[in-house]
């Protein structure tokens, strides 16, 4: 087993800054934006993106929330799941532009679950997806609107995302035989 570093702290910061700019560009500003992170690491990435946006557009306060998708997963009967965590929607999402944020996009099943969860909570005008890493191998017709880094991988490899908030440092590494 070998681990190879793919993104350093500065790379992650640059990727998030670019994503923040792209979100503002396609949304034409910060109006009606709501950023929702998918636990665990998506939540912190969402907070960072919102922080960067408020630096770019002084005076704008983008609501940031948490969308837990555990109860909506389609593999609940097969796998031991992780515990559910609370969702938190800072504002009513009806008519808003919701940006979902996750760390790694892989099969697309988490995002599918997130879309179902959103449907139960309101009716956003637009839903977008931002991920730090897209590692391919989609099993559903889902793609990200904002991608930090495309990383082609094989199924046997694992992508580890480490963030200061949860792991003490910022790092993306790939683990597996190469």
């Amino acid at each position: 087993m070998t681990a190879r570093t793919l993104l350093q702290a500065a790379d992650i910061q640059r990727a998030l800054t670019r994503i923040a700019h792209e979100i503002l560009e396609s949304n034409r500003g910060a109006g009606d934006l709501v950023i929702l992170g998918i636990p665990t690491r998506g939540v912190f990435l969402a907070q960072r993106i919102a922080g960067i946006i408020s630096n770019i557009e002084p005076g704008s306060q983008v609501p940031v929330g948490v969308l837990d998708v555990t109860m909506y997963r389609d593999d609940l009967s097969d796998n031991p799941t992780r515990s559910t965590s609370p969702s938190h929607l800072p504002v009513n999402i009806d008519g808003a532009t919701v940006v979902l944020v996750d760390d790694v996009l892989y099969s697309g099943r988490t995002v599918r679950a997130a879309l179902d969860a959103l449907t139960d909570m309101g009716r956003p005008a637009v839903v977008r997806l931002a991920v730090l890493v897209d590692r391919g191998h989609r099993e559903l017709p889902i793609r990200a609107d904002y991608v930090g880094k495309n990383l082609p991988t094989s199924h046997s490899e694992r992508i580890n995302v480490r963030l200061v908030e949860t792991d003490g440092d910022d790092l993306v590494e790939i683990v597996g035989e190469r």
Partner: peptide, 21 residues
């Protein structure tokens, strides 16, 4: 008990049903 707290939150939603089971 923490999981029950999460369940309690869903009671305030317009759509109370979860698809988990």
């Amino acid at each position: 008990l923490d999981s029950a707290e999460v369940m309690a939150e869903t009671a305030d939603r317009p759509h109370k049903k979860l698809p988990a089971l």
